[in-house]
Structures are given as C-alpha cells and as structure tokens.
C-alpha cells in the first residue's frame, strides 16, 4: 500500500516537474511539438524532383515520408551555409552529392516502381503573397553522383 502511494506521488512529481521545466526525460516528455512561433514568410522547404531520360518527372515520395523532411532540412542547412559565404562552395557541393547518394540508396531500398532516374533536381518551394513558388536550385545527374 505504501509503495502505491509513493509510486503515485513520484510519477505526479516527475510529470509536474517536466511540465514546469519543459524538458525531455524519456519516456516522459513535455510535448513541445508545434510550439515555436513561426510566420509563413519563414517557411521554405527543399524537395527532390526525379527526372528520367524521357524528361518525365515525379516528386521523390519515400515510403516513410519523414525521410523527405530529414533530407530537406539537411539540404536547407547546405543552402543557408551558402548564403553566409563562410565555407567553400566545393565542400557544400560534395555534401549535397552525399545527401543525394543517400536518397538514391533509399529509392533502391524502397523499390516502389521502375522509374529510371536520370537526374535529381533540388527544388526550393515557398509561398509568396499570391502563389506557391518553385525554383530549381541545383541539378545533379545520377552518373555524376555515382562516380
């Protein structure tokens, strides 16, 4: 009976502490998702468009859609580093190729359809006042990546 009381109040204490401090204490969590203040002008994502040798295109849609968000945030880092002009462009370019090689590995792993990839295009997507803007920021041929 004492154990039940101690356990009850111990769990309540941890929950209250986590909530008050807003920290992660796995498996306890303060659930901070979607809590940051954002404005639509800050939203800019990087998606990958696949193109075959006939010129047909399709978005890279992995079986587990979180992957495109992870890859997109890595690409975003590459382009924001480029903006600040601190690091050598060649290193950033190598990093982009490394990311795309990883994407290629995942496409093979997913094996969803027989779309023969010829080119990877990195597309920047954002919204302006009236419409969605899509800009191709980089193009990499598959053979160039696999070299």
């Amino acid at each position: 009976m004492i154990l039940s009381f101690v356990f009850f109040f111990a769990v309540i204490f941890v929950l209250a502490f986590i909530t008050y401090k807003g920290i992660e204490f796995y498996p306890f969590s303060s659930f901070p998702m979607f809590s940051n203040y954002l404005e639509k002008e800050q939203i800019k994502i990087y998606r990958i468009l696949l193109k075959n040798d006939l010129g047909q295109v399709e978005w890279w849609n992995p079986r587990f859609d979180r992957y495109q968000i992870y890859i997109g945030s890595e690409l975003k880092k590459c382009y924001s580093t480029l903006d600040s002009q601190i690091v050598n462009r060649a290193i950033i370019n190598l990093n982009k190729k490394k990311i795309l090689r990883f994407v290629h590995e995942m496409i093979i792993c997913d094996n969803v359809n027989d779309f023969k990839i010829d080119t990877f295009e990195i597309i920047e997507r954002k919204k302006t006042e009236n419409c969605i803007v899509e800009v191709t920021v980089d193009v990499f041929r598959l053979e160039e990546l696999l070299k």
Binding site: F34, N36, Y37, L38, E39, K40, Q42, I43, I45, R47, D65, Q68, I69, G72, R125, K126, K127, I132
Partner: peptide, 13 residues
C-alpha cells in the same frame, strides 16, 4: 500565424 505557417509547411511537403 504559427498555425498558418505549420499548415503551409505541411502543404509544401
């Protein structure tokens, strides 16, 4: 604005 931005981001994906 935050809800708008999060929804927009999800639309873009």
């Amino acid at each position: 604005h935050s809800t708008q931005a999060y929804l927009l981001e999800n639309y873009l994906w």
